[in-house]
Computed example of a mutant assay.
Amino acid sequence: MTRARLTWNGNAVIRGTHDGAVRGLRLGSEHVLQVSRERVPIEEGTLERSGTATVDEQSLTAAVAYDTPYAVRQHEEMDYRHDAGRTAKFLELPMAEEADTVGEIIAAEMRRALR
């Protein structure tokens, strides 16, 4: 008869997946921020520089935001004219377009944490 011993490190696994998810969210939100910065309307660069990416480690949520008094208006006003490559919906579109990439980034970091 062959015997095997199994040691379950459940807490370490949970901690590792959480840490990997946090790193993945951080990298994924930074990726979306970078893509959106390439599209944000630019006059003096104030709006572009106001972009931030944050992660709430407890709730495992990430946010990308622009913080100027006119950021929402610039984002929503489809009739404004912008320089080539710059557009309204400068955050919404990259978030949708990069969703698969962000998912891959998060998955890769979680796999890396479990090695």
Rank of each mutant, 00 (worst) to 15 (best):
M1H: 10
M1A: 10
T2H: 09
T2I: 04
R3P: 02
R5Q: 12
R5L: 12
R5T: 13
R5N: 11
L6I: 11
N9F: 08
N11K: 13
V13P: 07
V13S: 08
V13Q: 04
I14H: 13
T17P: 00
T17I: 14
T17M: 15
H18G: 05
H18V: 02
D19H: 12
D19T: 03
G20Q: 03
R23E: 15
G24C: 03
R26F: 02
R26I: 01
L27T: 03
G28V: 03
S29N: 08
E30W: 00
V32C: 07
L33C: 06
Q34S: 14
S36M: 06
S36Y: 03
S36T: 09
R37C: 14
R37Q: 15
V40I: 09
V40G: 09
P41S: 09
P41E: 13
I42H: 13
I42E: 14
E43Q: 07
E44I: 06
E44N: 07
T46A: 10
L47Q: 11
E48Q: 14
E48W: 03
E48H: 06
R49P: 01
R49Q: 07
R49T: 05
G51F: 00
G51T: 07
G51Y: 04
T52E: 15
T52M: 12
T52A: 13
T52R: 13
T52Q: 13
A53G: 03
T54W: 01
T54N: 08
D56Q: 07
E57Y: 06
S59W: 00
L60Q: 13
L60N: 06
L60F: 08
T61C: 05
T61G: 00
A62I: 09
A63F: 01
V64C: 13
A65D: 13
A65R: 15
Y66M: 15
D67S: 12
T68A: 04
T68P: 10
T68R: 10
T68Q: 04
T68H: 11
P69Y: 12
Y70R: 01
Y70I: 07
Y70G: 05
A71S: 15
A71M: 11
V72M: 13
R73A: 14
Q74M: 12
H75K: 12
H75P: 05
E76N: 11
M78W: 03
M78H: 08
M78L: 14
M78I: 11
D83E: 14
A84C: 00
A84Q: 10
G85F: 05
G85A: 11
R86A: 04
R86V: 06
A88T: 06
A88F: 01
A88C: 11
K89L: 11
K89E: 12
F90Q: 02
F90N: 03
E92C: 02
L93C: 00
M95C: 14
A96S: 10
A96F: 09
E98Y: 04
D100P: 03
T101M: 10
T101A: 08
V102D: 07
V102T: 10
E104L: 05
E104R: 15
E104I: 00
I105L: 09
I106C: 08
I106Y: 07
A107K: 09
A107Y: 06
A107M: 04
A108S: 14
M110Y: 08
M110K: 05
M110D: 05
M110L: 14
R111F: 09
A113V: 09
L114R: 01
L114A: 13
